[in-house]
C-alpha cells in the first residue's frame, strides 16, 4: 500500500449515521423480503401438494426458472424490463418484490421437503384420534415441520440477507451502496469494502448464532425417526 493511501477504517466509521441508515434499509428489505417469501413459498408448497395437477406443474416450472437463473438478472428483468409490460416500479418496491419472489421459490422447496419428511404414521394417528384435516394441519403438520425445516430455513434466510447486497446495483440505498458511496467520495475503496465485509460478517454470524439457539431450544420436540 502506498504511503499516501493509509488504511483508515476510522474514516469510514466516522460516517456512522449514514452507515446505520443503509443498515436500516438492508434490514427492512431483508425482513419484508423474507417474510413475504416465507408466506408465498408456503402457499406455493401447499398449491403443489394439494392443488390440481396443472397448477402443480405451473408452480414447479416457475420455481425451477427462478432457481435456475441469477438473482441479478431477475432484478434487471423486473426493474428495467417491467415498464415495457406496464409494471413501472421505483427501485425499493422493485427490490422488495424481486427479493420476495426469489425467496419464495427457495422457501417453497424447503416447505415441500418439510411436508415430505413428516412420517405418514403421524397423520394416520391424527386421523384416528378424530382430528379434522385443518386440525391435523395446524396441530400436527405445522409444528412438526417447523422443527424439521428450521435449520435449512435459517440458512436460507441468511442467504437472503447476503442477496440484498445485489440490490445496490439498481441504486437501492442499502448498506452496500451507502458504504461504497463513502468509499468513492474519499477514494478509499479498500477501506470501505473491508468495513462492509466486516459488517455483513458480523450480521451473518449473529443470525447464525440466534438460529442455532432456536434450533437447540426446539430440538426436544424433534420426533424419533
Amino acid at each position: 500500500m502506498g504511503a499516501d493511501m493509509s488504511f483508515d477504517l476510522g474514516l469510514i466509521l466516522s460516517y456512522l449515521p449514514r452507515i446505520l441508515e443503509g443498515l436500516g434499509v438492508t434490514l427492512m428489505l431483508w425482513v419484508i423480503g423474507s417474510a413475504l417469501g416465507l408466506a408465498v413459498g408456503f402457499a406455493v408448497a401447499v398449491g403443489r401438494r394439494y392443488g390440481p395437477a396443472p397448477l402443480g406443474w405451473l408452480l414447479r416450472g416457475i420455481v425451477e426458472v427462478i432457481r435456475g437463473t441469477p438473482f441479478l438478472v431477475q432484478v434487471f428483468l423486473l426493474y428495467y424490463g417491467g415498464p415495457f409490460i406496464g409494471l413501472r416500479l421505483e427501485n425499493i418496491p422493485a427490490g422488495i418484490l424481486a427479493l420476495a419472489i426469489y425467496a419464495a421459490a427457495y422457501y417453497s422447496e424447503l416447505w415441500r421437503a418439510g411436508f415430505d419428511a413428516i412420517p405418514k404414521g403421524h397423520l394416520e394417528a391424527a386421523d384416528c384420534v378424530g382430528f379434522t384435516e385443518w386440525q391435523t394441519l395446524r396441530r400436527i403438520i405445522l409444528p412438526e415441520m417447523t422443527v424439521l425445516v428450521l435449520p435449512s430455513m435459517v440458512n436460507m434466510t441468511i442467504l437472503i440477507l447476503k442477496e440484498t447486497a445485489i440490490l445496490s446495483i439498481i441504486s437501492l440505498p442499502e448498506l452496500t451502496l451507502s458504504v461504497s458511496a463513502i468509499g468513492t467520495q474519499h477514494y478509499a475503496f479498500v477501506e470501505s469494502f473491508t468495513v462492509l465485509a466486516l459488517l455483513y460478517w458480523a450480521l451473518v454470524e449473529i443470525c447464525g448464532a440466534l438460529g442455532r439457539r432456536a434450533e437447540a431450544r426446539l430440538s426436544k420436540y424433534r420426533f424419533a425417526t
Binding site: K162, E163, A165, I166, S168, I169, T176, S180, F189, V190, F193, T194, L196, A197, Y200, W201, V204, E205, G208
Partner: peptide, 15 residues
Amino acid sequence: RGTPLLVQLLLIYYL
C-alpha cells in the same frame, strides 16, 4: 460464507 460475494468481489477488485 458470511459476506456477500458482491462485496468480496469489490474488495478483491480494489485490494
